[in-house]
Design a binder for these strands. Structure first.
Lengths: 250, 250
DNA sequence: GCAAAAGTGTTATCATTACACCCATGG
DNA sequence: CCATGGGTGTAATGATAACACTTTTGC
């Protein structure tokens, strides 16, 4: 009992942040899961997360966890819900402020070797610990909603990408199919894309993960007969358009 | 020190829920504020809220607070953000899980007399306590976003309403003007409205508040030459349409 | 009968959808 | 030279925006 050093007049819940990390493998949307090494739910997969420090905001906590798991600093994260069921954690009353993150698989180096982490494609996600199944569904829903208003998809692609891969990404996220020509026309006319040449040596290249059995779909790397043009996302143009008010829909 | 009865191995933050309560007076969007009777920020206006009980979810806590302040049970509420800056409350580390509520002004009876509560139109909101200014802005932004996808506006109107008042509501929320005829056409063709007759005695009537100096704009109650048709929102039809997938935009 | 607000339709414009042809390249 | 995927345009369709006339009713 000696180590119960923190005293309060009223009971306090504890608070964690959890992070649903989305990555795109060129074909499907993936999430990064870690295997729990401790009870409760030992051996089950869950989203990376952990207790909030007393001197950090929830966002800072989520970014810290994210860096610990993926090595990424300053990734794109977004708070989408706080889970607060009194019984969601069997240990004590714990709220979780949940974020989703959009990261480039290509840049994920892997973190701590202490935790076993693995990418799972969305149609292959195992049963998760705590209320993380619900967390995933809500993250997906919110992310799909957001992509109607903001070009967040670009966070998931390499800096330089083809329109085809952009289309595959949108199709994977929204679970729909677009006509190749209409998608191209819309994208070009939006003016958010800058064409770039791909003389640069380190463009798409091989993707080398330390994480589990992720197989990059061949269609992402197979050499087509004709090289596709590469584009980048013009964030400045986007900001301009946002000032004037516009809708970005798919 | 004897009353510090709750002991933890690690420090715990405290958690509140706060509720941005929106109401429509027929002309402008209003929020319900309470005057703080205690330090910190004594005398400043703030959103109703309070500490989360250990056995209730954040949503249950927000509904409880809402009922205490407005007398409304089971109102429409929606979680939109958790505020977590470590210094947002000078007393101790406190997170706030924030909700917005959409209520019918007509049905708000007022709660506890202990607290001074008042409606403020959006262009007349005083400086608020804590980070509640930011809270208001975010609530507005999220609510405006949501109204593009779901007909939440109906929560703010009486059960029976005219298309004109529905238009005024949308204009107040989105801060735009619509062509009266186009708005009418769109609404009618959407099929979400059922026409009802207004032989019922207790329809719109007088609005009688116990709250502050709210003045209902005369245009809401002034008798026009010709009675406008009354409509109700057809929730069943809405659910049907949602199944089939549709977009509700304005 | 006229002023004020309500109900409603028609056309022009713009965005979305469906669809097809030519080009570049590696084998 | 041909198979494969890439770049791009055009016509039909549907949605949104602009706009005006008629009806009701209290005075």
């Amino acid at each position: 009992m000696e180590n119960l050093r923190y005293h309060y007049k009223y009971p306090h819940p504890n608070v964690t942040t959890d992070c649903v990390i989305f990555g795109f493998d060129g074909n499907k949307l993936n999430v990064l899961l870690v295997e729990r090494g401790l009870e409760p739910y030992k051996g089950r997969w869950a989203f990376p997360g952990g207790f909030l420090n007393m001197d950090e905001s929830a966002e800072a906590g989520a970014l810290r966890e994210l860096q610990e798991e993926t090595g990424l600093k300053g990734a794109y994260i977004r708070q989408f819900h706080t889970f607060s069921d009194p019984n969601r954690d069997p240990r004590e009353r714990i709220l979780s402020v949940a974020y989703y993150a959009l990261v480039r698989l290509q840049e994920v180096k892997g973190g701590d070797d202490a935790v076993k982490a693995e990418w799972f494609s969305l149609d292959n996600v195992p049963p998760l610990a705590f209320d993380h199944d619900e967390m995933l569904q809500m993250a997906l829903k919110e992310m799909r909603k957001q992509i109607h208003f903001e070009p967040i998809g670009f966070e998931l692609l390499p800096k330089k990408f083809t329109i085809k891969s952009l289309q595959q990404l949108y199709e994977a996220i929204l679970n729909v199919k677009f006509d190749r020509r209409n998608f191209y026309n819309k994208m070009i006319h939006l003016g958010l894309l800058d064409q770039v040449n791909h003389d640069d040596e380190n463009d798409v290249k091989e993707i080398n993960f330390k994480f589990g059995p992720l197989e990059i779909d061949a269609s992402f790397t197979r050499k087509p007969r004709r090289d596709a043009l590469l584009y980048t996302f013009n964030a400045k143009k986007y900001e301009e358009m946002k000032q004037k008010g516009f809708k970005l829909e798919f």
